[in-house]
Computed example of a mutant assay.
Amino acid sequence: MKTTVCAALALGLLAAASAAHAADAARARLDAFAKGLNSLSGSFEQQVFDPNGTAGKKTQGTLALEAPRQFRWDVVKPYQQQIVADGMHVWIYDPDLEQVNVRNQGVEEAHSPLTVLTDLKQMDVEYAATEQGERDGATWLRLKSKAKEPDFEYADLGFDAQGLARMTFKDTLGNRTEIHFADWKRNPAMPAGHFKFTPPPGVDVIGDVKPEAEVRPIKD
């Protein structure tokens, strides 16, 4: 199943003392991880589960984010796929099919659970965040979109001592995606054109590149 991220486990019951201790733990870790963050790169391992809990193949690859709304997601195993969001459009390139899909980068898509890492103020405007306690070696924060028609039901961000370690999200069709992160590099110098995409010669391009995309750069 070729499913990507452009981030559904049961809540742990905590004793009163533990709940008080964890009341702001995940949000505090998010704030610490995102402080001074303008760009981010790392690696990931992802697995998708259908509504019946059946697991798809694990995928592995690399990702990169840059404020305000750019991201790049490169799947390298067990197949290749590239997703590039340049702030105006989202490009999805499948080399096996020799096909590129392109669409306008909508507001909610631009403000995904990962891109909010570089813009916490916008996160607080667009998401309701609630503490989920500790489980599986991580402290969890749940994000639920305030949009009338959200693209996903919720996204859980899991933090360990090193920062963001995991993300679990459930889409509106009931599919659950679990992602493990590693090798984070904070504010790396991104190569020129890293968040630009030009369709390779000879591939089919499906969709239109339109100038009226909803995303606009953030004003200070």
Rank of each mutant, 00 (worst) to 15 (best):
96 D>S: 12
99 Q>D: 00
95 P>A: 06
158 G>Y: 07
111 H>N: 15
95 P>T: 10
166 R>I: 06
118 T>W: 04
144 K>A: 15
100 V>L: 05
145 S>A: 11
96 D>A: 14
160 D>L: 05
116 V>D: 06
147 A>V: 10
110 A>L: 05
160 D>A: 07
105 Q>F: 11
138 A>P: 00
127 Y>C: 08
142 R>N: 08
126 E>K: 13
145 S>L: 11
143 L>E: 04
135 R>A: 15
146 K>S: 08
120 L>N: 11
94 D>P: 09
157 L>I: 08
144 K>M: 14
158 G>H: 03
154 Y>E: 06
134 E>F: 01
96 D>M: 13
151 D>H: 12
165 A>H: 07
94 D>I: 10
155 A>F: 12
92 I>R: 12
132 Q>G: 00
116 V>H: 04
108 E>A: 08
113 P>W: 05
94 D>L: 10
92 I>P: 00
148 K>T: 12
102 V>N: 08
126 E>C: 00
143 L>F: 09
111 H>K: 11
142 R>C: 07
103 R>C: 02
120 L>G: 07
159 F>C: 08
164 L>H: 09
140 W>N: 03
103 R>F: 05
152 F>T: 01
103 R>E: 10
127 Y>I: 11
162 Q>K: 15
139 T>L: 07
121 K>P: 03
125 V>I: 10
143 L>Q: 06
129 A>N: 04
130 T>W: 00
145 S>G: 12
159 F>T: 10
158 G>A: 09
161 A>E: 12
119 D>P: 05
110 A>E: 07
158 G>K: 03
145 S>M: 04
140 W>V: 01
160 D>V: 04
165 A>E: 01
118 T>R: 12
165 A>D: 02
135 R>Y: 00
109 E>H: 02
118 T>Y: 02
161 A>Q: 13
100 V>Y: 06
131 E>W: 07
124 D>R: 14
